[in-house]
Write a protein that binds this DNA or RNA. Structure first.
Length: 873
RNA sequence: GGGUGAUUAGCUCAGUGGUUUAGAGCAUUUGUUUUACAAGCAAAAGGUCACUAGUUCAAAUCUAGUAUCACCCA
């Protein structure tokens, strides 16, 4: 059979994937007789194509899905995409801007159309990429967070929470992008460390006899001051405060403001006196809320575009930076400005427009979170977290510190808040028709002016649709306790990056426990985060990654999958294309092993059973390794499990078993080999599904085997695996000795080795002599009573053997031995010191003391032998 | 500013208190094409395990501090 040198993934992967789909291997139905296994694909945002971070996450999910399918479970893996309101809107605004279009000038219908077009395009791309990677999702259950069912679910939940009184509207400081003239979410803010100035300004008391020096980075906001605040434990200013002069005069503005106290003020920052402008600072607003009764109304000083408004006297209409310069000049002239000091502080920038963010008061919708805390704390312990214990404390901290959730966003793309206004009435309803009904009933009118009904123009935070996903994708919200839901729920294990622990994972837990009193998933597996060469997180919004199609075309899906498993994915790691090479080489190795098995011709050997030893060994080692593999996988140690398979295949199977097979091939041996290869393909399949299935197809055809498709074959369970560790150890000894023998430089190719006769029994217990004869250059091992001087002594571990002097190349050998003697001498001293230490003998466990003493003995023996050998040359 | 994690070979990473010189892969150097695989095989070289202190008979491994980097939150 003519087979090309490499596996052709470009041609074959698609064929194989389509075959799986045709045979409906990915489909999941309600089936009482089978155990269910429910997985959810964390829906990627439709903001672009997938990147290597997704591959890590989805490969792990696919390994689980495929393994559990092979174990006989009814696997239901639901895929989907997320509308990602903010992130998508950013992308679209940029897209329109490049075309010279301002989104604010478009009608709502047009905007919606643009979004639909975009989302359809990227849904297609993402799903094709998921298929290209090999994800075994049930495509009949594909979801989109904005499709009909999910939309309904989201609105349903909003209304239920609203009716419970858990959703309210309130004025809150929001982040205002003065360039885009909209609010933006916290998620869109980037903090940059920038050089800034801290200004020291005099504020005189009412009687003008005293003054406080306040410190601020924003002198232009003095028009909005309504108080000056000091830490109550700060004793420096007691005199001034107690002097019946509790009011200060704002310079230039000449308005009186009170002095208040608050613990949140940092005494060390500047002078410890801070001016309070609640309309433009989150911290100030909090202080304002606490001291509301003492203070007058908040003064807003900014227009929507960030220029100063009519409250700012002569600076009306000017921008912030101009105003800051101007006001400093005047303060300086009048003697109010004492000094300015260089500092570095975190300044908020908009990710969208890269301009400075202003804080601004606005009306927002909130969800009360306090009712979620108790039930969550009760049940969260039932969720197991992997890697074990890594994030447990973090969860508890988050739950205990949770604040009310701002769920409204001022955007176009998202689930519209189902609140309608009619003549100062608030009406909550699922849709427009219901609103009309409600109004008609209330006012007992037959006709209403529809133009008077207006829907709230906010949309819901993206995560509001995400936190119900485990339930909503099984339609468990619109149709509670439907058959599918009862059968599959909860998710068996959630796999996701630890960076969305708070945003997504915790909220899903809280929602599910609060709403249906069940945990949404039994287990969570957190992956590390993939970083780029500059150690930054790889993300769609940064765009700091290579196109996935590029990598898929260059390496193929199988290589990508194992390439990323070469690294312990429990921690964050840097992705480098180079790390795929190890994977590529491994795939090549598998391909060529297959090549050998298929093409190696049966040799005419007289002996039929010449393969007994190697088969005995491989049977043992294979079962032992699979046993270990199962243990790793049961504890979700994906990296370790992969490394184990890698070594098993490359070292045990290729380097030893196949080398042997190549020489001694016969019919029996070939049958056995095909059998082992099939098992290896099985355990490799979850990691590299395409090539394993392809090879299996060809083997089936060529040898007319009746092996099942790998994807539905039976995974080897631990109960059925038999192995003997003593036998494995004996083989290991043998192979190590062979390796050692290979290092000796012989003149001729075939030599005899001589061992003293009295050790014959001992040696037969430790190693398989026959194997040494067959697998090394050694012609034969011979036992002799006496060994003369013309032999050179070698020893490996406890085995002493001799080789004829004239058959060996002696070059630097003597030097090497000398170095070894030096090394062991030093080592011996170390151990001697240790053993002489009384504390060590007293406190160390007996086992260790024994071990050390044994070491001492062994090394002494070794030294003796080395010295003998040294003089022998 | 608060929290979490990382720092081991030129690079990307394994290694959780004692296992006879801390391991892979890539890169480097040397040898090796009638050989399933040169994307192979065989070998060499390359490490005060970030730094400082502590706990311990014993520390890359545990604790604390410092430095650097990253992530999450504000």
């Amino acid at each position: 059979m003519n087979i090309k040198k490499n596996y052709n993934f470009k041609k074959n992967n698609k064929i194989i994937y389509n075959k799986w789909i045709k045979k409906k291997y990915f489909n999941s139905y309600y089936n009482k007789k089978k155990k269910s296994f429910y997985l959810l694909l964390p829906p990627p945002n439709i903001t672009g194509d997938l990147h290597i971070g997704h591959i890590l996450n989805y490969t792990i999910l696919d390994i689980l899905a495929r393994k559990y399918k092979m174990l006989g479970y009814n696997v239901c893996w639901i895929p989907g995409t997320d509308h990602a309101s903010i992130a998508t809107e950013i992308k679209i605004i940029k897209l329109l801007k490049n075309k010279g279009i301002n989104i604010n000038n478009l009608s709502k219908k047009k905007i919606y159309k643009i979004f639909l077009k975009w989302s359809n395009k990227y849904k297609k791309i993402i799903i094709s990429q998921l298929k290209n990677i090999g994800c075994s999702c049930d495509w009949n259950r594909e979801q989109f967070t904005m499709d009909k069912n999910n939309y309904k679910s989201v609105i349903n939940i909003f209304i239920k929470l609203y009716k419970k009184g858990m959703i309210y509207k309130k004025k809150k400081i929001v982040n205002w992008d003065i360039y885009a003239k909209t609010t933006i979410s916290d998620e869109e803010i980037i903090y940059k460390k920038k050089k800034n100035y801290l200004y020291y300004i005099k504020y005189f008391t009412e009687d003008k006899k005293n003054y406080l020096i306040i410190t601020t980075t924003r002198p232009e906001t003095i028009f909005g001051d309504i108080a000056v605040c000091i830490n109550p434990t700060d004793k420096r200013y007691i005199k001034i405060i107690n002097n019946n002069n509790k009011k200060l005069i704002i310079p230039i503005v000449n308005r009186l403001i009170p002095i208040i106290m608050d613990k949140s003020i940092d005494k060390e920052f500047g002078t410890g006196c801070v001016k309070i402008t609640p309309a433009h600072s989150y911290e100030d607003f909090n202080i304002y809320k606490k001291n509301k009764y003492k203070l007058k109304n908040i003064i807003n000083i900014f227009n929507k575009d960030g220029t100063l408004n009519k409250n700012c006297m002569f600076l009306k209409g000017k921008d912030i930076f101009y105003a800051r310069k101007k006001i400093c000049k005047i303060l300086n002239k009048l003697g109010f400005l004492i000094k300015k000091k260089k500092i570095f502080s975190n300044i908020a920038f908009s990710d969208r427009t890269n301009t400075i963010i202003e804080n601004r008061l606005s009306n927002q919708w909130f969800l009360k979170m306090n009712k979620f805390i108790k039930p969550t704390l009760k049940k969260i312990k039932n969720i197991k977290i992997y890697p074990i214990n890594k994030y447990n404390n973090l969860f508890l901290k988050w739950i205990n510190n949770i604040k009310d959730w701002n769920i409204s966003r001022q955007l176009n793309w998202g689930h519209k808040i189902p609140i309608f206004y009619y003549k100062k009435n608030k009406i909550v309803a699922n849709n427009f028709k219901k609103v009309i009904k409600i109004i008609k009933n209330k006012y007992k009118k037959k006709k209403i002016n529809l133009n008077l009904i207006k829907q709230d123009n906010n949309v819901l935070d993206t995560w509001f649709s995400s936190w119900i996903l485990p339930i909503s994708v099984l339609n468990g919200i619109n149709k509670p306790n439907n058959i599918d839901f009862n059968y599959f729920f909860p998710i068996n294990i959630l796999v996701t990056g630890h960076d969305i622990l708070f945003f997504w994972v915790l909220r899903m837990i809280m929602f599910s426990i609060f709403f249906i009193k069940k945990i949404p998933f039994k287990k969570i597996y957190f992956t590390g985060i993939v970083r780029d060469n500059f150690k930054k997180k790889i993300s769609k919004s940064l765009g700091n990654y290579k196109n996935l199609y590029f990598l898929l075309n260059k390496y193929g899906a199988d290589v990508l999958r194992i390439g990323i498993l070469n690294i312990n994915n429990e921690y964050d790691f840097i992705f480098d294309e180079k790390m795929l090479i190890k994977g590529r080489n491994f795939i090549n190795k598998i391909w060529n092993a297959f090549n050998l098995i298929i093409n190696n011709k049966v040799k005419k050997n007289k002996k039929k059973n010449n393969n007994k030893i190697i088969i005995k060994w491989f049977n043992n080692i294979l079962n032992y390794k699979i046993y270990k593999l199962n243990n790793y996988l049961n504890n979700y140690k994906f990296h370790k499990s992969y490394i184990l398979i890698y070594k098993l295949f490359k070292k045990n199977f290729c380097s030893i078993y196949l080398e042997y097979f190549k020489k001694k091939n016969n019919n029996n041996f070939k049958k056995k080999t095909l059998h082992y290869f099939y098992i290896l393909l099985k355990i490799l399949h979850p990691y590299i599904p395409f090539i394993t299935e392809y090879i299996n197809n060809i083997l089936n055809k060529k040898f007319k085997l009746n092996n099942k498709d790998i994807i539905i074959s039976k995974w080897p369970k631990n109960k059925k695996l038999k192995f003997n560790k003593k036998i494995i150890n004996k083989f290991n000894n043998t192979f190590l000795l062979i390796k050692y023998l290979k290092k000796i430089k012989f003149i001729k190719k075939k030599n005899n080795i001589y061992i003293k006769k009295k050790y014959k029994k001992k040696i037969k217990k430790i190693i398989y002599i026959k194997l040494i004869n067959e697998l090394s250059f050694i012609k034969k091992i011979k036992f002799k009573k006496k060994i003369k001087n013309n032999y050179i002594l070698f020893f490996y571990k406890k085995i002493k053997f001799f080789i004829l002097k004239k058959n060996i190349i002696i070059l630097n050998e003597k030097n090497n031995i000398y170095n070894k003697i030096l090394f062991y001498n030093k080592y011996l001293l170390k151990i001697k010191k240790k053993i002489k230490n009384k504390k060590f003998l007293l406190l160390a466990p007996k086992k260790i003391i024994k071990l050390e003493k044994k070491k001492k003995k062994d090394i002494k023996k070794k030294l003796l032998l080395l010295k003998k050998k040294y003089f022998n040359y």
